[in-house]
Design a protein around this nucleic acid. Structure first.
Lengths: 196, 196
DNA sequence: CGCGGGTTTGATGATGCTCAAGCCCGGTGG
DNA sequence: CCACCGGGCTTGAGCATCATCAAACCCGCG
């Protein structure tokens, strides 16, 4: 069951994991199950775990005034979920993290982070992830600022084709920062143009 | 001349620098001057340095189709500048980084990164910075998606009052993702409301 | 059968972009 | 000393994009 995680670490750290590392990781990271609609994190509470998704789909969002959900992350297999700020500094989160499908995770706690980071492969993986995160949010920002609804959706479909299938339209709309009606129309117009 | 950097590192790493660390850092990081309008990085070239701003103001932007400048960073004293992707992986950059005022920097090269990272304080500083970056781009994304022009500008002024003074209106407009005309009108409307 | 979540469709209005013109001001050269 | 120029900023008019609101539709399920 740990294999997807080991693969992920090796791919990202660009290094091979020793058997003893694997054992160490397996001794620290515990399996956790979430049922559809169950929360991994709720606003106001402290993010106790960082989790790696083995199977399932999860969304992260905050609730703006007037109770509007504002989705800022849609995750599936082989993604990490956490509220970094809350997790690291033990402060209350402003986010919700909710399973959208029944989900299997491997999780670790804050106090185990230091132990994990003793392994160079893990350290490099986190470094690389932070780099990729940085680049990805740069791109998303670019998109939000300079592209219209159609272009944003096209880019999203191109980058995350697997995710498009797994979440309802209004979640994706919220993630892209457009209304569900607009996204619905965008999809329609794309179909006409040969729904590539 | 290295003091602002040392202060910065201590503040971010939340640790004190030993004299030997200071010497090591000073032996690695070289001063560099840029004159107004001089480029620190140009599209297509590889980002050779990562720089810490001692004095001056710098902007980072890309050029979209039709030659429109798209500003994604405005930096002044005590900020780092680099194109992380290009710097780390030696790949051509898509960005320009240009001095907007005469600027004094302290810079280091890619091969010196490993040496710097041997110092725990530096490692923790970079870790912390990556965390802050992550949080900041999350917020900026939020703003881009859910706030209108006025609200975005208000937030910008609140977060970066020093920057507002140092760059012309059309740079800030581009950074916020609004047209210069719109930002001009926004400013006017704020003045009416008591220009707080 | 009726209910509810998700989606679609249409009408309307707000926001903000584009284009065009003019203004302000500091710097340069005659 | 003045005329001119250019960069930055402002103002106005018209238009595109997109949010909002309201209604209807679709479909799986109790």
């Amino acid at each position: 069951m740990y294999d997807p995680l080991f693969d992920y670490i090796e791919r990202y750290s660009d290094a091979e994991l020793l058997t003893c590392d694997r054992e160490r990781i397996a001794s620290i990271m515990k399996p956790k199950k979430l049922r559809r609609r169950q929360f991994f994190l709720e606003e106001g509470s402290i993010c106790a775990y960082t989790g790696f998704i083995l199977k399932g789909a999860v969304r992260q969002f905050s609730i703006a005034d007037k109770g509007i959900e504002c989705i800022n992350q849609l995750c599936i297999e082989n993604w990490w979920i956490t509220d970094r700020e809350s997790f690291i500094h033990h402060i209350p989160s402003v986010y919700y993290i909710e399973a959208w499908e029944d989900t299997d995770l491997l999780v670790f706690r804050r106090q185990d982070l230091e132990i994990l980071l003793e392994m160079p492969a893990i350290q490099r993986m986190f470094w690389k992830m932070s780099e990729n995160n940085h680049i990805a949010s740069q791109k998303r920002l670019d998109a939000a600022i300079s592209l219209n609804a159609l272009q944003r959706y096209e880019r999203f479909v191109r980058c995350y084709p697997e995710i498009v299938q797994r979440f309802p339209l209004h979640h994706i709309a919220s993630y892209l920062g457009v209304s569900k009606e607009t996204l619905s129309r965008v999809r329609k117009s794309r179909v006409k143009l040969g729904h590539k």
